[in-house]
Write a protein that binds this DNA or RNA. Structure first.
Lengths: 197, 197
DNA sequence: AGCGCTTCTTGAACTAGATTAAGATTTTTC
DNA sequence: GAAAAATCTTAATCTAGTTCAAGAAGCGCT
């Protein structure tokens, strides 16, 4: 068990070190402030209406973030797979209820930074400000690219593009969720697939 | 002129200080590394195909970031007004050509951080890492909310929502650009407006 | 191995929004 | 202040994608 946790933390530290260097002491501090959590299939780590009180780093598995519209339909805003962070950062900062829910689509292991330690951790390891500056920058530009794709290509083109870019991932999630992420109905996705094989 | 520039810089420093505290020395360093630039109506600060080599902070005016699709139609990915940063951060970091163009929609004044000084500036004033961490976090979550709106509401609903949220801004830009930003055609926007007055 | 639940498919009728094209209005320029 | 350019409107036709409904596969569970 101890060894297991160590390996988990190693994944996060390796990821951080892709962006900033860390001294052994800093590594130790980070390890001291985070913890791992196992999330069962279909379990929620955040439920809309509740306040988000952690950042989640996916070590293994898949999370989805989604909203419920008035008429009861779900809309997937984003997925997180290995080495991605997910949270409702606005709810986290303002401590107001979140519009979003975050759910595991597989048995998933996450590393957690809790609200109550986040500021202290960032003060003790200021390099994390830079690390997250770069993480948010990437997430932001990736989301802008997504807006660009939504506006400039048809649903069919978006499906093929996503399929070509992340073929392994498409295998792992139900098609109706992919449809929701791409912004159309499962029936329409079925039709696209029927055309071309 | 000197006074004018000082006022400009004050706007940026005031904005930074909404997120992090700055000592007088740090303020001085920041002032030393940035400069202002006046951008004429319709002038481009970034042209797609070129490498983006600066961050731009809008002091006064409006910028738009857009792409050209194969068939020649423009798609506006975002606007920047007073106190917003705009850049193609991916192109900036990788020094690869940008897909986007950035253009002024009014005579606009920006404060510029050039690529060649950015790393040095951040090293000398590490608080800027935190500042931009928070800036990117907001930009990221705002863009996620936009994706949510695109998927969960009709074009008409999006128009009314935008109109209610930013009535003064809607006055300042041509309607066909608003249509492009909201993801539909100018003709459709005309129809929406005809319905309701 | 069979029952129940979740996911996927197909087809027919429908609609939000695109496209095309022409004219009207407003803004800019000399 | 008239001509040119840019923006906005209207209407007819068309299409990508939705909705509804029903059946077919797939898959986890005892």
């Amino acid at each position: 068990m101890e060894i297991q946790i160590l390996i988990m933390h190693t994944e996060l530290l390796a990821h951080i070190k892709r962006f900033v260097s860390l001294t052994p002491e800093e590594e130790k501090i980070v390890k001291g402030y985070v913890h791992t959590q196992d999330v069962k299939y279909k379990e929620l780590v955040l439920k809309s209406g509740q306040v988000c009180d952690a950042y989640y780093f996916v070590v293994k598995g898949v999370l989805r973030m989604y909203t419920l519209t008035d008429n009861g339909t779900e809309h997937i805003v984003q997925f997180a797979i290995d080495n991605w962070w997910m949270s409702d950062y606005t709810s986290f900062d303002t401590q107001k209820p979140s519009l979003f829910s975050i759910q595991a689509l597989e048995p998933t292991t996450v590393i957690v930074i809790d609200k109550k330690v986040q500021e202290t951790l960032f003060q003790e390891v200021p390099k994390l400000e830079r690390y997250f500056r770069l993480i948010f920058q990437r997430a932001y530009t990736a989301t802008l690219m997504r807006v660009h794709f939504i506006f400039s290509s048809s649903g069919e083109a978006r499906y093929h593009h996503f399929n070509n870019s992340f073929p392994e991932f498409v295998q792992r999630i139900p098609q109706y969720m992919l449809a929701s992420y791409l912004g159309f109905t499962p029936e329409f996705l079925s039709k696209i697939r029927a055309k071309k094989i």
